[in-house]
Design a protein around this nucleic acid. Sequence first.
DNA 1: ATGTCGGCGCCCCGCCGACAA
DNA 2: TTGTCGGCGGGGCGCCGACAT
Lengths: 485, 485
Amino acid sequence: MKMTTNASGCTLTTENPSEVGEKKSVINPELWLTCAGPLVNLPVAGTHVVYFPQGHSEQVAASMKKDVDAQIPNYPNLQSKMLCILHSVTLHADPETDDVYAQMTLQPVPSFDKEALLRSDLSMKVNKPQTQFFCKALTASDTSTHGGFSVPRRAAEKIFPPLDFSMQPPAQELIARDLHDTQWTFRHIYRGQPKRHLLTTGWSLFVSGKRLVAGDSVLFIRDENQQLLLGIRRANRQPTNLSSSVLSSNSMHIGILAAAAHAAANNSPFTVFYNPRASPSEFVIPLAKYYKAVCGSQISLGMRFRMMFETEESGTRRYMGTITGISDLDPVRWKNSQWRNLQVGWDECTGRDRRTRVSVWEIEPVTAPFFICPTPPFYRPKRPRQPGMPDDESAYLDNLLDMSNKDPGLSLVQWMNMQQNSSLANPIQPNYLSPLSGPVLQNYGAPQISQNNLQFGSQRSTMPLDPLQKLPQAATMSPSPLASL
Amino acid sequence: MKMTTNASGCTLTTENPSEVGEKKSVINPELWLTCAGPLVNLPVAGTHVVYFPQGHSEQVAASMKKDVDAQIPNYPNLQSKMLCILHSVTLHADPETDDVYAQMTLQPVPSFDKEALLRSDLSMKVNKPQTQFFCKALTASDTSTHGGFSVPRRAAEKIFPPLDFSMQPPAQELIARDLHDTQWTFRHIYRGQPKRHLLTTGWSLFVSGKRLVAGDSVLFIRDENQQLLLGIRRANRQPTNLSSSVLSSNSMHIGILAAAAHAAANNSPFTVFYNPRASPSEFVIPLAKYYKAVCGSQISLGMRFRMMFETEESGTRRYMGTITGISDLDPVRWKNSQWRNLQVGWDECTGRDRRTRVSVWEIEPVTAPFFICPTPPFYRPKRPRQPGMPDDESAYLDNLLDMSNKDPGLSLVQWMNMQQNSSLANPIQPNYLSPLSGPVLQNYGAPQISQNNLQFGSQRSTMPLDPLQKLPQAATMSPSPLASL
DNA sequence: ATGTCGGCGCCCCGCCGACAA
DNA sequence: TTGTCGGCGGGGCGCCGACAT
């Protein structure tokens, strides 16, 4: 198994040749991430994550273009979320379609400690190397057999090696490798009236080889060795495998739930696949991201927030929205789940995916104006929190713990209670509770928390020692209540 | 849902447009069966079948090119076989690869009666319409862009409409439809020196459209309306979906077992997919086929048998073999399962698939010579059974019941006991037990059998009325023991 | 009987600048 | 700045019979 070590010292397992067969190539992580899109943030191997079976099931439903309707057995011991150690993350690309996906090995753990939270938070900072790239949606001319590919001027100047403009016309041979390490060669020429950058010879082979059509996107990046890499993103989000021909949609959903339930009961490892472009929402969330979102924010009806969306050109853009409801997405199967339990409205059209439900860790709360939120419980004169603004890292971490130790805002218990008890009639009047009880992270005496049924995962098995961490057995903290409370 | 009724009055559900999407075409059953191969025998909707989760799991493993190795939770209440009603059979073809597969809806039932057995036996006789067809493996010349398709002389004369030989050269336009009802047109010409049948114009579009390579096969059939249909069979049995990118192999296996266990516990319907060309063995067996094989034959070490194999040209051929062992394929997970529990050796090379393990219903026992089988328990002077020989139907059915009522040979209980108790040291000496007890089918007083744990499926739930059958509630018979005895 | 190849006609792939949006 | 098109040259697709097996 090949490991790459990034700047932070965290390891990212990229490919397991023994499992994929004779394939010897290693997926380039930068290229994989660029293909996955600007919003995808893979958790780092060795850190703690929160796994949502409901979201996992949702991704399969999206891949199959089918609802989760059929009768699926209840797994009463299966939580709506599971605290896990992420043992490995391997990057893959479908050899037929070039669709990127990740394979993650998770192992449920009953609780986490301070260091795990710190490590998770640290890992979130170093995940995305900001590689130089460009991404263009293919036009009808680009994909027709009549001609080549028209390269946007800025893109060519930023990514491609500089041309020798003493030549007439200036031209060079470009060699780029895709996710499977296949080489593609193109003739890059600067000609025409007015002058423009074009890819000619070799381009049609690429289009037909990848079966690209107008609307699909192609992207080029330069890695740290100045090597040219290229990837594709298909436009039509229609699932190719309408019916799986191997397993019924029902069996797939059952398989996911049963595998998770079995792993939870035995604290044993299990494997999931994450397809970034199949479904809009991630279902394996870094612990720190989850923790900060759930413990660090007040969620209330009428609350204003911002959220990131992907633009056509693979950029990001924030849209403003308002929380219009807090309710279970599936009150029958997943009661009191935090998975997409916020109903939202948007100030403007958010493009293709009009999401009406999001999870709390997907949004950035905006400090409410005084007439809506007269006593902001998060107001700190000395260190105001600006969600979404990059801070000095040490200050940020300090802030994270500071928040937990001194001013946790709503505890999770309060928040969950609020969810259950609040009447959702008035969308303007905020109906959160003011912070009353002590901070969660000060509860170092774990037993009483355990009695209160506040642990992640299964209660009947004792916590196995995490093989990846040799931490002193400090006090464990369990700030999250069970959804089945 | 479109239903077609064949000669016997049995219905075969062919396609469910609402589930596949906007696709309105109905899969032609004859074409589907021809593509599936001569050995495939689909059970008929409305009849009883025996479902083997182990075989189902095996097919998924073959599709994924992966062993069933990972830790899979035990389902102690899941039998190695389940008696089911087959509610529906819908035929499908992968839109990308044209691979044929069938979707079956099964519902566990605890027992069956005499009429169910008769209906199952009847349904086996009417399944295969012997359509006229030809099948040719494509040569390098057939698939190259240099030329067209060379049609074997006999094939063209048998399947294609006759040419007008007054023309110079004789030629016509052929229109054939594939499994998706897509029309393909070819120029059929009789020319060259020596004269031969060729498909020219249109052929290369077909080859590139289906992505055929040398070694793949193409087949043409004429349906009852004299319409030309065509299908393909790919040569390389390498699974296209090496890694599923949606579900881990482990979750798939768990999904199969959990779905079957849930259905068995609740006597509720569940759905399976059967890929005829992914794995060599069927895992949904008509009840009568299973019953005749298990109750109608003696199985012993050293026993001689014949078995059908598919030839290169989509024909059938029998190979002779010897039973060299009787043992569990998976003694840990599937103890005392009848799934491929016979180890066999072959007299000659059986071609590509050298199967070393088969199930008893896959073979045709050959009456052993006297020096090996001194007291053949099946010897009936008045009506000797000739396995594999087509009999008069009424006589055959009579024989089936006759056998059950008067001379069942080994009862299943005896046979299972034999499996467990026999020492397998001597491969020549037959070590079966001689028939001792009375016939199973005479045990009409079901309760005592139920006490002996001889029922299919779950015991705790009562048998739900089969909605497809309005049979008089005759006495039920339960000849099969549980594998977990 | 049929797989492969040389010959060769012509279609269309693909490179070019001219426009226009 | 860049999407589309007419022009047009040449490579290869594809039809033919000649062989060989």
